[in-house]
């Protein structure tokens, strides 16, 4: 293409924008409100929070003093940070594995033809759509040691001798939360798999069947390899969701029982900032979580690219 007189291609970055020069003023006017919003709601808070990590600040007072890297250095000596980090992993690993296995299983079942399939598919999303506080209240009642439903059942069925204490054990309580979290999040994972399965042609499965593959081998050699990229994506999505697990902890345990036994980094950051009013160190913790999320988020976008079909 020859040089178009309307699009200026040389000069400063501004003049290289695909905008006619005489329209630049309009562009500025139209973009200004959005730009101001972004500045006020995203860029300024971001910069402010970065600056927070180098000062001593609290939510109570206005006085702030410059402390350099002290807040960051504190990470290294903070046992509760280490514990929260370890517990974050304790949440993430089982939550990812369980949600992907259950989600995959449910998706495979829902991908079959059976009467009432649409109804089951629709009801699948209920746990996911419920507000976290409702889920918390529901399980608090369901799992309560004395008044709850499940513990007496287990005793009656002879599974346990005494009612199981779902919310008092260490680290048992953490796994109770993992269980509830998985119950709430697996529908999304199942949905992702279900969508992906729609792209696996029925004919390919039929071909495998005619070639002599039984159900397990059709899954092992055709469906599973086909779903591998999706499994990667599902794992990372579940990881991101689980790192940010907060509401269930807040509503059900408040970080206990015992010594912070259900803390994760996210919850610790919240506690530090808003209950111990140490905004600076809270911001540092939040940035640690952010860093983890950004790293895995980038992995997700790369995984998503490999998900694209030929």
């Amino acid at each position: 293409m020859t040089e178009s007189p309307m699009v200026v291609r040389r000069g400063s970055w501004l003049s290289r924008l695909p905008i006619r020069r005489e329209n630049l003023a309009y562009a500025g006017i139209f973009l200004a409100p959005t730009f101001l919003l972004v500045l006020a709601l995203i860029i300024y808070p971001l910069l402010f929070s970065v600056s927070l990590t180098f000062t001593r600040a609290s939510t109570l007072g206005a006085e702030r003093s410059w402390v350099g890297l002290d807040n960051w250095a504190r990470l290294l000596e903070d046992p509760l940070f280490r514990q929260s980090l370890v517990q974050t992993v304790m949440y993430v690993v089982p939550a990812c594995i369980l949600a992907v296995i259950i989600g995959l299983g449910v998706a495979l079942v829902l991908n079959q033809d059976f009467p009432g399939r649409m109804l089951v598919r629709a009801s699948l999303l209920i746990p996911w759509a419920l507000p976290p506080v409702v889920v918390a209240a529901m399980f608090q009642w369901f799992l309560d040691g004395r008044r709850g439903l499940l513990a007496p059942w287990l005793v009656q069925l002879g599974v346990t001798d005494t009612p199981v204490a779902f919310f008092t054990g260490v680290p048992g309580t953490l796994y109770t939360l993992v269980g509830i979290h998985v119950w709430k999040t697996f529908p999304l994972i199942a949905l992702i798999f279900l969508v992906s399965l729609q792209y696996l042609p029925r004919e390919t499965i039929h071909a495998a069947q005619i070639d002599g593959a039984n159900g397990w081998r059709r899954f092992r050699y055709v469906t599973f390899p086909f779903l591998l990229p999706t499994i990667g994506v599902a794992l990372i999505i579940q990881l991101l969701v689980t790192i940010q697990l907060f509401d269930l902890i807040f509503a059900l345990t408040g970080g206990g029982p015992g010594a912070y036994s259900t803390y994760n980094l996210y919850f610790y950051a919240f506690k530090t900032s808003f209950e111990h009013t140490n905004l600076s160190y809270g911001a540092v913790l939040a940035y640690v979580v952010t860093a983890i999320i950004v790293i895995f988020g980038l992995l997700l976008t790369r995984g998503g690219r490999s998900l694209r079909l030929s």
């Binding site: 042609p201 004919e203 390919t204 039929h206 071909a207 495998a208 069947q209 005619i210 070639d211 002599g212 593959a213 039984n214 050699y221 055709v222 390899p225 086909f226 591998l228 079909l309 030929s310």
Partner: peptide, 17 residues
């Protein structure tokens, strides 16, 4: 899987992986 027939589909239905 037990009929011992082979089928070629219009879409070919090759195993993508």
């Amino acid at each position: 899987e037990r009929r011992d027939v082979a089928m070629v589909f219009q879409s070919y239905a090759l195993y993508p992986n």
